[in-house]
Amino acid sequence: MYTQSMDIPGQQPRAVAAAEQGAQEQEFEARIAADRKVEPRDWMPEAYRRTLVRQISQHAHSEVVGMLPEGNWLTRAPTLKRKAILMAKVQDEGGHGLYLYAAAETLGVSRDTLLDQLHSGKAKYSSIFNYPTVSWADIGAIGWLVDGAAIMNQIPLCRCSYGPYARAMIRVCKEESFHQRQGYEIMLALANGTPAQKRMAQDALDRWWWPVLAMFGPHDSDSQHSGQSMRWGIKRVSNDDLRQKFVDATVPQAELLGLTLPDPLLKWNAQRGHYDFGPIDWDDFWKVVNGDGPCNRERLATRVRAHAEGAWVREAAMAHAEKQRRKAHQEAA
């Protein structure tokens, strides 16, 4: 159940004795070891709760901010069909944000608090959305590569130890597959189009490739939260393993498009059974994460403005609902 506000009869807040907490912690560890799910009102260590709130809310913020780069092309999609598809995709992203905020709320944090953290810049979202979408081919590249990378990342999360997060991810993954396919189809149309269209597709690939590889996060050796998250069954596959899997899957897809991945060091390594690839520019990654990407300020400002300008609608809807309730109450009396 996606909520904290359920009423439990006779339940009173009470101080938990240290001994009891030790027993609870053991039970929790045993549950994790046995790969069983944790549900919202089960006892969990405070650090586990905090980690989940951070990860799920960052994920939710990413879905919501992720609507902005694509929303930029809604009014300029080349055909009515492409426009309808893009609209459906952007709508999905909004829905994914909702599933994820709802999962985070089960951990006892309110939606408003999470949104405040996003709007004040305290909470992060995926750095990939701080890059601009300057041509239509970027919409293709985002679907194919950004959503492709997201799927790679999200499939293992369907087995996350926290029930509501895992369930939200299952729903998200089901919907996400169309996102990647429509992106690849856009790239396919451009790659098989005029020379200028093919150049456009190649240009988008050149710009998105490295930021997408960075999306999987720092190398395992430098990843601050990875070890504990793996032990808790929140994270199932390491950053480097996911990144390798993504590269291996994407190389043949690029070949089929007749496009070149912008990495002179990319080479099949028969010994490893994987593609080798060049070093990622982590300085650029951290610059974008820490607020100095090409679009950080614009994205956040757009998001805050949308929220502020919608405030009167939310307040009016609430006032109307309260008025209706009062009226119904008076008529009944």
Binding site: M1, Y2, T3, G95, L98, Y99, A102, E105, R111, R167, A168, R171, R314, A317, M318, H320, A321, Q324, R325
Partner: peptide, 19 residues
């Protein structure tokens, strides 16, 4: 299937349909 915020039941139903 999940949850959502809404000012009243009628809008909750409509939002549920949309999401």
């Amino acid at each position: 299937v999940g949850s959502l915020h809404a000012p009243d039941a009628k809008l909750a139903l409509q939002n549920a349909r949309d999401v």
